[in-house]
Design a protein around this nucleic acid. Sequence first.
DNA 1: CAGCATCCTCGTAGATACTG
DNA 2: CAGTATCTACGAGGATGCTG
Lengths: 133, 133
Amino acid sequence: MSVAHTRVTPQAGGPCGDDDCGIREVLDRIGDKWTVLVLVELAKGVRRFRELHRAIPGISQRMLTLTTRRLCRDGLVERTAYPTIPPQVEYELTAMGRSLAESVQRLAGWSREHKDAMREARARWDADHPGEA
Amino acid sequence: MSVAHTRVTPQAGGPCGDDDCGIREVLDRIGDKWTVLVLVELAKGVRRFRELHRAIPGISQRMLTLTTRRLCRDGLVERTAYPTIPPQVEYELTAMGRSLAESVQRLAGWSREHKDAMREARARWDADHPGEA
DNA sequence: CAGCATCCTCGTAGATACTG
DNA sequence: CAGTATCTACGAGGATGCTG
């Protein structure tokens, strides 16, 4: 997510209310393509770089590096590097990271509960609105 | 958020587990720049197009149109157009939309609780890692 | 008022090659 | 193994003008 988020001006007390300001902040963290997947995988336990890479099909080394680094920076993940040869690096959720992963998984629960309803709604809409991409 | 999401191949039973597959699905819906803001504003009650536009500073007419349409398509928002002159259109959350808004706001709660800790973590990281953009 | 159509910018992420 | 560096693309989103 950051979706080229040019940041919605967070003017406290502005017309945007106070509720959503917090929302954009999380979404700017977890809204991107890979963060949640890493989060969920790490929720299962400690993982090495390569293990994460294999566990998350499709992610490139580059994106895994960037994603884990951002998570470390925000205090959501702890990185431990053992100066062995070959090198070995372990990633683990911090307490805050586990708390976020939990919240995220609740949202995933919502998704599972409603995915069918949404699929139907979409099919209905598409049927009623012919001539749309 | 669709963040140019080329869709992580959702191979059931794959190494990516079953938990996260639901996560990406919600994020593909709400992870973009404006959806959650519209969701939260509509959670406060029925809104007309112009009211939404004013309530969400920074959004363009184009993006508001696209965002509301997608929400309608997924059955999260109901659109009611009155054929008056000038036209008048009202947007309202459906039951499913309200349910999603609630879940999203819980995530926003997490954000508010931890934003300070994350800010501190980031400051610490930046101090320990000089020479990064 | 509530859109639609068009053009353009710029960030996210993919691909590939190299290193401690 | 666990990265870094560089180049490229794609597409979400911004700006602007027009319409029923």
